[in-house]
């Protein structure tokens, strides 16, 4: 990592790419807003999730568990488990970004999949910061605006099942899972986790099947010691 100043042309290229990712990702917020009110959350609760939690998969998970009739706390636990991957992103980004104090505390809020992806490949601290912050901040602004629009629209149309919005939740999870299905181990874990969840649905309170499936990840991690990812 060097402190070399950033060439203005490289800087505009990074900003352009990052804004592109920011606009494309921020727009998903419409889907989250619509799905969240379909799950029974109010517009205010939906917007609070996007403002406070701000990590897409965790937000979808919380409203998904609530939509399935689970206790909100089971939803929050699922959201936290999904949020653990951001900790790993942070470990990777910390030596690149080299933020301290209030800058680090602020940057942490926009530490998500996309901002990490747009920052982690850079050669200098300044380039990493430009990619990370441009992506993270543009997604934050657009994701929250889009959430509000989606929630208001979702609220206005009445019974969400008539528009198939309950089916949209499963599709959203699948789209988030899709890029992670590389490799035999990940595919087996996905199938086993789905099987555990379905097998436990009839016998445990709603929300618990998803948490039970997390055990599959733990078990697979322990058993596949030494195998390449």
């Amino acid at each position: 990592m060097t402190d070399a100043p950033l060439d203005p042309r490289e800087r505009s290229a990074i900003i352009r790419d990052s804004l592109g990712v920011g606009v494309a990702t921020g727009a998903y917020g419409v889907g989250f807003g619509a799905v969240s009110v379909a799950a029974g959350l109010s517009v205010a609760q939906t917007c609070a999730l996007s403002l406070l939690v701000f990590t897409g998969a965790s937000q979808f998970a919380l409203v998904g568990v609530v939509a399935a009739g689970g206790a909100p706390i089971s939803g929050a636990l699922t959201a936290l488990l999904l949020g653990t991957r951001n900790t790993l992103y942070g470990l990777r980004m910390a030596p690149l970004l080299r933020f301290t104090g209030w800058r680090r505390a602020t940057a942490a809020h926009v530490l998500i999949d996309e901002s990490t992806a747009m920052g982690v490949t850079r050669e200098t601290t300044e380039a990493a910061r430009v990619g990370f912050l441009t992506t993270g901040v543009s997604i934050f602004v657009l994701w929250n605006l889009a959430t509000f629009l989606g929630a208001v629209a979702g609220n206005a149309i009445g019974d969400p099942r008539r528009y198939g919005l309950d089916a949209a939740v499963g599709a959203a999870f699948l789209a988030l899972l899709w890029p992670r299905l590389h490799g035999r181990r990940n595919q087996l874990v996905a199938v086993a986790a789905a099987a555990v969840a379905l097998a436990t649905v009839p016998v445990v309170p709603a929300g618990v099947p998803v948490l039970a499936a997390a055990a599959v990840a733990l078990l697979a991690g322990l058993l596949t010691r030494g195998e390449p990812a």
Binding site: T78, L82, L177, A214
Partner: peptide, 19 residues
């Protein structure tokens, strides 16, 4: 490894339950 597999397991379970 576990941190990499947790999103896979949770998302797959969420799909199964949701659908």
């Amino acid at each position: 490894r576990v941190a990499d597999l947790i999103p896979v397991a949770l998302l797959a379970a969420l799909i199964a339950v949701q659908v």
